[in-house]
């Protein structure tokens, strides 16, 4: 069996662009607005979401043949909640600084529609390896948008990247001012809209009539 056959590659890579969960499927927008004021939390959130979606998908896929249909959503929720709690407990013990930054975001992962969506749409009806790739792919597709939005919001809103000043002082001396609007939530939505615009312009087949 080829682990990276054409179909598996498609599962892994298509969520990055043509089936991107944020800009094409319009999922997970709420958390994308909340955490992207700075680049660092965006990256941390992206990594955490990749891990949680991948493993939640694998677990659901492994037990998919035993789950009673009527309570499947509850089972999915429990699996996701356990993973999120475990991740936060382990971080608290072994990466305390990280866990302090993550505190709210870890909780937000559970409310992320992409997570439940992938377990329901993919994990329940596919094998563990495919589910793992699907989870990685969708997590990465989500994370990619998060990082792009975080990059522009921190750069234009605070003049820094990862907390390091990148806009040179002489520009401020010349009268350049950080755009305070960029760190407010509405600008995240507008930034995502701009990404969608560019993305649709380059992928004509995604355009609706």
């Amino acid at each position: 069996m080829n682990l990276f056959s054409g179909k598996n590659k498609e599962i892994l890579l298509s969520p990055l662009s043509k089936k991107n969960p944020v800009v094409v499927q319009m999922l997970g927008i709420c958390s994308a607005l909340a955490v992207t004021a700075k680049l660092e939390p965006s990256i941390v959130m992206a990594v955490s979401v990749v891990i949680v979606i991948a493993f939640a998908n694998v677990i659901i896929s492994l037990i998919r043949k035993t789950i009673p249909n009527r309570i499947r959503i509850i089972v999915q929720l429990v699996v996701a909640a356990v993973l999120v709690t475990l991740v936060s407990e382990v971080l608290k013990a072994y990466a305390y600084e990280m866990s302090k930054q993550l505190s709210v975001f870890i909780g937000l992962i559970l409310t992320n529609c992409i997570l439940m969506g992938r377990m329901e749409a993919f994990g329940l009806s596919n094998g563990p390896w495919e589910s793992f790739l699907d989870g990685i792919g969708h997590g990465a597709g989500y994370g990619l948008i998060l990082i792009i939005v975080g990059f522009f919001r921190e750069l234009l809103g605070s003049g820094t990247l990862l907390g390091i000043q990148v806009v040179p002082q002489f520009l401020y001396d010349l009268g350049y001012v950080n755009n305070g609007l960029m760190i407010l939530p509405p600008m995240a939505l507008i930034t995502i809209a701009v990404i969608i615009w560019i993305h649709r312009a380059r992928n004509k087949d995604l355009q609706e009539n």
Binding site: I67, P68, R70, I71, V75, V82
Partner: peptide, 30 residues
């Protein structure tokens, strides 16, 4: 369905309680 839900909940509770107890000392120190 009822048995499945029951077993799942007990299993999950045990796993979380165990993790919490096992990591408590390190977390408190942090």
């Amino acid at each position: 369905t009822v048995i499945y839900a029951g077993v799942l909940v007990v299993f999950v509770a045990a796993a979380l309680a165990f993790t919490n107890q096992a990591l408590k000392e390190t977390q408190k120190k942090n």
